[in-house]
Nucleic acid binder design. Sequence first.
DNA 1: TTAGGTGTACTATAACAGATAGTACACTAT
DNA 2: ATAGTGTACTATCTGTTATAGTACACCTAA
Lengths: 125, 125
Amino acid sequence: MFQIDRFGRTPIYEQIIDQTQRLILTGVLKAGDQLPSVRTLSQELSINPNTLQKAYGELERRGVCISAPGNGRFVTGDALRIVGEGMEEQLEEIKRIGRELCAAGIPFERALEAVKAAYEKEAKV
Amino acid sequence: MFQIDRFGRTPIYEQIIDQTQRLILTGVLKAGDQLPSVRTLSQELSINPNTLQKAYGELERRGVCISAPGNGRFVTGDALRIVGEGMEEQLEEIKRIGRELCAAGIPFERALEAVKAAYEKEAKV
DNA sequence: TTAGGTGTACTATAACAGATAGTACACTAT
DNA sequence: ATAGTGTACTATCTGTTATAGTACACCTAA
């Protein structure tokens, strides 16, 4: 369910956050679903429980999940909306890169193809 | 000429690299131009000469500039081509974000508009 | 009630990257 | 010679990331 890259520059806890949000976006995790517990997932991924706690804590701060002490941690009803809203930032990131590509003399068509290809590829999956 | 953000997560030396390449892309820095010296620029930006050395060293490794000890540091003739080639990676980044946007249910048109807006804005500048 | 699972909190430590400080040396142009 | 350039090196500080270990509170089910 989760895949950790220990060599890249992205911290483990951020990878957990990203992947959890991705699972929510793709509908694998739905509102009310229980997230894997700190202990079991930390064993499964061979990472420290504290690292996982940090990731879950941030997700909770964003309102993506809610903890029920002694019971478990669950995806909230707002999760999908909240994660979706975060995509606005991604659109800004695309704009930033777009300006660089333009400055680099990359034709608009090539940038357009990249976005188009991404959508076609994702839609198939 | 250079602008440093000390609070963001991007290391200073990376900001220097990015901005130098950007200046080359936009034609502000041309082949043969001298880059600001380690000492003067480090004073101007209030950063450590070593940090600057690190940035310049990487640019040199990429072939963007070449040092003439005792003389200065100059933009190479290949600089524009080399920096331009690096843009391929940016296209991959756009694809990656595009897939996420698609997964998030952001309509293709919105992603398209973002790229279009970037090109129009950049072209005016 | 007890056992076992859950989340939470805390301290301590290690490792690493980024940045700074300071010094010293070699080279080139004037 | 002088002043500016690049280069090399050690040492130190800081913040982030990750780990280790411990302890406690809570809930559920047997």
